[in-house]
């Protein structure tokens, strides 16, 4: 059994995911580079959940049963390499949300293994779960912003939680807001921002701790097509910096346009795993409880 805790306590210095030096694409704006943390950044004991080599996300025969006999996932095995951009598609109830909640250990697998960054989450102590979550950025359909805090404060919160100094918070928050295209809007409250802008704040919050894995659950579910396009472009840019991006969606147009790897779930099983578009639904079109 791997000693997960030992690894977490090991605070050696490795290149962070957000180093943008090798990125060859012109689409990445130059200002992205400023997000690279300084070498002097403070590391705290137990503060680091550092993914090892190998796949970023690995499911091995994962079964998740809810109370009663409701099956969230019914034997899912899949592997997502570091740096991939993957769509997770399927109807409501197909198991997309279960898949995502297993990745951040909001749920535990009934059987099988969920391995993130080389660590089996089934063996992760509960007290270490916060450190796992800091290594994963999460974006949701409903943004999950704190309504009584400005955009800046919402992003700053994720930094304060990880124990960054106020100077560092003051330095990094404007940078990351500029990166997601919210330059100058840091003082606005969420209700003063459009849906697309709120989702950008939520992405900024997910990115500010430089996660190696970004998970987005229906990030464009509440947005119009043009705004959705902007959000997907932002996620693509983030992926090009080396961050693994996993997007759960049932937005057929977006998936067809992006032509990325698509994992299709149906009734808790993987029914397709290939590059390309959304494709036809293999099963019936009714809602599955």
């Amino acid at each position: 059994m791997a000693r997960i805790d030992d690894d977490i306590h090991d605070a050696g210095s490795t290149p962070r995911a957000f180093t943008l030096v090798e990125v060859p694409l012109e689409t990445v704006p130059a200002d992205l580079a400023v997000v690279t943390p300084p070498a002097s950044e403070k590391r705290r004991r137990g503060d680091v959940f550092r993914p090892g080599p190998g796949p970023m996300v690995q499911f091995q025969g994962v079964i998740k049963r809810y109370d009663g006999d409701v099956r969230g996932l019914d034997g899912v095995s899949v592997s997502i390499a570091a740096g991939e951009f993957v769509f997770l598609v399927g109807q409501s109830g197909s198991g997309k949300s279960t898949f995502i909640r297993l990745c951040i250990r909001e749920l535990r697998a009934t059987s099988g293994h969920v391995i993130i960054g080389g660590r089996d989450l089934g063996e992760l102590k509960r007290s270490k779960v916060p450190y796992l979550r800091r290594a994963i950025g999460c974006v949701f359909q409903d943004f999950r912003l704190l309504p009584d805090r400005t955009a800046s404060e919402n992003v700053a919160y994720a930094l304060q939680v990880t124990g960054h100094s106020r100077q560092e918070v003051n330095r990094r928050v404007p940078e990351i807001l500029a990166l997601v295209g919210l330059d100058g809007k840091g003082d606005r409250l969420p209700r003063e921002l459009s849906g697309g802008e709120q989702q950008r704040v939520s992405i900024a919050r997910a990115l500010v701790n430089q996660p190696r894995l970004l998970i987005a659950d229906e990030p464009t579910g509440n947005l119009d097509p043009d705004t959705s396009q902007g959000i997907m472009d932002l996620l693509t840019r983030i992926n090009r910096t080396g961050t693994t991006v996993l997007v759960a969606t049932h937005d057929r147009d977006t998936v067809d346009r992006m032509q990325q790897r698509v994992i299709a779930l149906h009734k808790g099983r993987i029914v397709r795993d290939a590059e390309g578009g959304y494709n036809e639904d293999p099963g019936d079109t009714g809602e599955i409880a």
Partner: peptide
């Protein structure tokens, strides 16, 4: 949200 961004208990 606190739990989501990795706040300890």
């Amino acid at each position: 949200v606190m739990r989501l961004v990795g706040a300890t208990n």
